[in-house]
């Protein structure tokens, strides 16, 4: 049996549920919006650590020892809407905090397949931190400067420009930000970076690839777009990005699997760009990839691979 935890109507979660149905894989859905109706008990075994059990809204018990794998795509519970049956009751928030704390801590130590463990997902909290790990795992990373010094930023921009390259800037943290090209007019407001180091990156020319790794399987998507950030291509260029499934060179596919393993992210979305000379530069590994966008556009069976992996199936077909 596998456990799928998240908002069932959210596209990636819905696809995982559909795939489990399609493959006849027994599953339980922990609807995060109904977390108040779930109970979780952890008992400490002196030899094997924490053992858990959950009880769902229908009173059915789930022995967590029988769960082979868990797909978790839970949102910050503080942003969940209040229950539909009226205002929050006293103690609701404390109970929600405790439930999520216990569940996430158990995910970190549970001895089954997890996509992905909360602690491992935190490497993405800092792009430069994760970039360092990515570089140590063998991928090229973009040339980057993080600085609070306007003069250093201008020198970086000017050097890249002299070599024919643009510079982009984006958040260092995991906060979602739209990648922007640095314009000459931006120099006038560089004084603001004195408040907080800001990330500047030499723009890597080439074609974007999103690679989803599921256990040992790899699904490549090639993205054609003229936008600085293809996720916002329609807004930035007036034309949506074009996505197609693609086979990756064997060494690149193997490197992505090794990267996922090195980051302890068995299910990850790796962002690559293939440069005109055929090199692959890695931007980041997304620990909670919104794979539905890619599956919908390419038909790649990512959700099926995910639920089969969670069920213990490592088949390559």
């Amino acid at each position: 049996m596998i456990l799928i935890a998240g908002i069932p109507s959210e596209a990636p979660v819905a696809l995982a549920i559909d795939a489990a149905e399609e493959w006849g894989i027994a599953y339980v859905v922990l609807d995060q919006r109904a977390h108040r109706d779930w109970d979780l008990t952890l008992n400490l075994d002196p030899h094997s650590g924490w053992r858990g059990a959950m009880t769902g809204p229908d009173g059915g018990a789930v022995d967590l020892d029988e769960v082979t794998g868990i797909y978790t795509r839970m949102m910050d519970h503080h942003f969940l809407p209040a229950p539909g049956d009226g205002p929050a009751r006293p103690g609701d928030l404390a109970r929600a905090d405790s439930f999520h704390h216990l569940f996430h801590a158990w995910l970190d130590v549970a001895q089954c397949r997890i996509a992905n463990r909360p602690r491992a997902m935190m490497s993405n909290m800092s792009k430069s931190y994760q970039a360092g790990l990515i570089a140590r795992l063998g991928f090229a990373i973009p040339e980057t400067l993080i600085t609070n010094d306007p003069d250093a930023a201008i020198a970086f921009v000017d050097r890249c420009a002299a070599e024919g390259d643009e510079v982009i800037y984006k958040s260092v943290s995991g906060a979602r930000s739209i990648v922007q090209s640095f314009a000459q007019s931006d120099k006038a407001r560089l004084g603001r970076i004195r408040w907080c180091p800001t990330q500047f990156q030499r723009k890597v020319r080439g074609t974007d690839y999103r690679v989803h790794v599921v256990g040992g399987r790899v699904f490549g998507t090639r993205i054609e777009s003229a936008a600085t950030d293809y996720r916002y291509a329609a807004r930035q260029t007036g034309e949506a990005a074009a996505l197609e499934a693609t086979e990756l060179p064997g060494r690149v596919a193997e490197a992505c699997v090794a990267l996922a393993a090195g980051l302890d992210l068995p299910f990850t979305g790796v962002d690559l760009r293939r440069t005109p000379n055929g090199d692959y530069v890695c931007f980041e590994a997304n620990p909670c990839p919104a794979f539905s966008y890619y599956e919908d556009h390419t038909g790649a069976p990512i959700s099926r691979a995910l639920v089969r992996w969670l069920a213990g199936d490592d088949c390559a077909d």
């Binding site: 430069s128 958040s171 906060a175 800001t198």
Partner: peptide, 12 residues
């Protein structure tokens, strides 16, 4: 968040 991310990346 940005300052934390920067320091984490630098220390790492």
């Amino acid at each position: 968040g940005e300052l934390h991310a920067f320091l984490l990346g630098w220390l790492g």
